[in-house]
Amino acid sequence: MTNRIIKQHPCLDSSKPSLVEREAYLKQLDRLQKASQPSKAYQEMVDQLRKATQPSKAYQEMVDQLRKATQPSKAYQEMVDQLRKATQPSKAYQEMVDQLRKAAQPSKAYLKQLEAAERLRKIFEQYAKH
């Protein structure tokens, strides 16, 4: 088999594309763009994989039920709140505790006398050393 050679006309400018060549380039570009997109079979496989890795509906329902079951009931929650309130000290008790705390603190005069006594003790200690 021999291939016939198409020869170039001497007046033709081969640097400028003809209408036919431009159309061929556009078709080629179109083909390349299509080729660079994933095929339909590939896309279907990806969809199937995505579906396969998603949890089933029955499983999802079971998880929801378990979540509900592990949550404390409303009645239990109310009882806990009441207990928390009951174990908190009353206002009157709190005031009494505050007054007692104040009463147990030493008076200002007593503190001054204590400081003076402390100074005297230091002086006596110094005399005793000499």
Binding site: I6, Q8, C11, L12, S18, L19, V20, E21, A24
Partner: peptide
Amino acid sequence: ELVKNMTD
């Protein structure tokens, strides 16, 4: 132009 298109 015709020849160019035919050639291509």
